[in-house]
């Protein structure tokens, strides 16, 4: 198993934390994992992205080499990264603000209204967990229990009270993706 996922959007959407929680879930399952952010003179509203690699063997390059999935949180990221995806890549869009282009349909496309689902689940700022849940639901790459545990590990004590709201958002995304998959 060698799996690389790109997570990209605006700063402030929880793109980097989404990747870190996924990496933590991989660590909990005793996988080899790397989390590699883009870094630069960037700030809230600028671009943010990271690449998470999960593997059973030692990981060489932590950089995007052969992506098996992409979680796209905003339109500019779709324009930038769509041409780099191989056919059939698992492609999850935050359809509240990202419009799928015809080329998206060459991929295993999931259009997930992440922000709306997050609001309905009771925590508007957890769109990133909805996206992560959708990814876990579509790919089965890690178990949902591991991600629940990872959320607990990730949040500092001062934010521990947000764990359950984030878990609910994750579950809502997971169910949404499973229904899309079944349809």
């Amino acid at each position: 198993m060698y799996h690389q996922v790109l997570i990209a959007g605006f700063g402030g959407q929880g793109v980097l934390s989404c990747g870190q929680i996924l990496a933590l879930a991989g660590m909990i399952e005793n996988r080899n994992v790397t989390w590699m952010p883009s870094y630069g003179p960037e700030q809230r509203g600028g671009t943010a992205r990271c690449v998470v690699t999960l593997a059973d063997r030692p990981i060489g390059s932590p950089l995007a080499e052969r992506l098996s999935a992409a979680l796209i949180f905003n339109q500019p990221s779709l324009a930038k990264f769509l041409p780099q995806l191989g056919d059939g890549t698992l492609l999850i869009l935050n359809s509240c603000i990202v419009q799928a282009t015809p080329a998206c349909h060459q991929h295993a496309l999931y259009q997930v209204p992440a922000d709306t689902i997050a609001r309905n689940a009771g925590f508007a700022r957890s769109g990133n967990m909805v996206m992560l849940g959708a990814y876990v639901g579509a790919s089965g790459i890690v178990s949902v229990e591991s991600v629940h545990e990872a959320i607990g590990k990730y949040l500092p004590p001062a934010k521990a009270h947000l764990a359950d709201a984030n878990r609910r958002a994750l579950d809502a995304g997971l169910h949404y993706a499973r229904e899309l998959k079944a349809a």
Binding site: Q20, V33, T34, M36, P37, P62
Partner: peptide, 10 residues
Amino acid sequence: DGVMGQMMEP
């Protein structure tokens, strides 16, 4: 280098 400094691993 910058990659090694910024990347996360267990």
